[in-house]
Design a protein around this nucleic acid. Sequence first.
DNA 1: TCTAAACTAGCACAGTCGTGCTACAACGAC
DNA 2: GTCGTTGTAGCACGACTGTGCTAGTTTAGA
Lengths: 195, 195
Amino acid sequence: MDAAERRREIAAAVWRVIRRDGVQGASVRAVAREAGTSMGALRHWFATQDELLHFAMTLVIEHARARVAAVVAGATPDARLVLRVLEETLPLDDGRRAEAEVWLALTARALTAPTLAALRDRSAEDLLALCRWVLTVLADAGDLRPGSDPSLEAERLYAVLDGLAVHAVTRPSALPVGRVRQVLAAHLDDLRDTR
Amino acid sequence: MDAAERRREIAAAVWRVIRRDGVQGASVRAVAREAGTSMGALRHWFATQDELLHFAMTLVIEHARARVAAVVAGATPDARLVLRVLEETLPLDDGRRAEAEVWLALTARALTAPTLAALRDRSAEDLLALCRWVLTVLADAGDLRPGSDPSLEAERLYAVLDGLAVHAVTRPSALPVGRVRQVLAAHLDDLRDTR
DNA sequence: TCTAAACTAGCACAGTCGTGCTACAACGAC
DNA sequence: GTCGTTGTAGCACGACTGTGCTAGTTTAGA
């Protein structure tokens, strides 16, 4: 049996439970039931509940990272690519919405769960680095508006991303997918001097 | 005894427990212990745990609303005021950080708690309205950059606010208070045509 | 002083919780 | 065949959960 695959299956069950009942509903028993297995079997793959949540969070991060890498791979870095890359981090379809919901739930949990916090910090660092990379791409293309502070702009772009993610996840009807893309595109236009 | 005041005291205990142990730690017993009272007494003021969390969230919203109102009251609406108003919604000191932590925890909880969700939606609507108001203030002062879509810009500003709030709360050392203010100020400068 | 209301205290019930633990089945290596 | 590893199953423990409930205490009004 493929151990990694088995763990991913169980993590998927964790996602489903979290989306349905929140983190507080993701008890060992509930996850085992959702995964169609027994408590004993589940604990063979994850010794503690913390491990379970930690891996579920890891998977969110991995998915996003893989999507970003797939878009970047072999493409020429320009303003159009940059938009597509950033869109991969936003909840623009069901799959990404699922991830974003789990991300929000576990991010909140991380406020009082040290091991989750460490994971969240690393992923935040990655996302901020992505934003910095975006700025350098625009700068290299001569597209960046003169006089702007790249470090500050990276922070602002990161805030826009996570702000949009939170709003799209919490109030999807008030902020439909198309609107999210508009806002992101507008922000990127703003970073360039295309006005 | 002042009933409203007593309820506020208990809600303050809820905040402390949530900050220390997360929402999942905010059991009726834990809150009663933190408030220095008994379960029975606590349940005299809040019949169910849901009511407890609901009121704790209400208080977060009320505090922010009151701060904003206090800044706006009697002042002339201009770009400088607008910055001060928006800063009231961000976790720039210990009090506001406490509120923002509770807000994040309960916002995540609201994903699977309908009564909290209703509350969160109303407060989100309020904040978005505040952002729209900011845009009209800038427009009225002739300060708004020509060609920008006020509705879209309100959405973007709202994203910046909540994105900054999330980052400031989750990673205070990576995003110190001064930096948060810089990013917000930069965004406001961007909305104007001061470049 | 007596009474009703407001308030406090905490037990009782019927659960669920995480995890330690043992028992058992499947299966490849020798 | 037999052994050891890998995976599954689920019981047992002690602790904690939200809320229904009764009983006691304090306070205010007449």
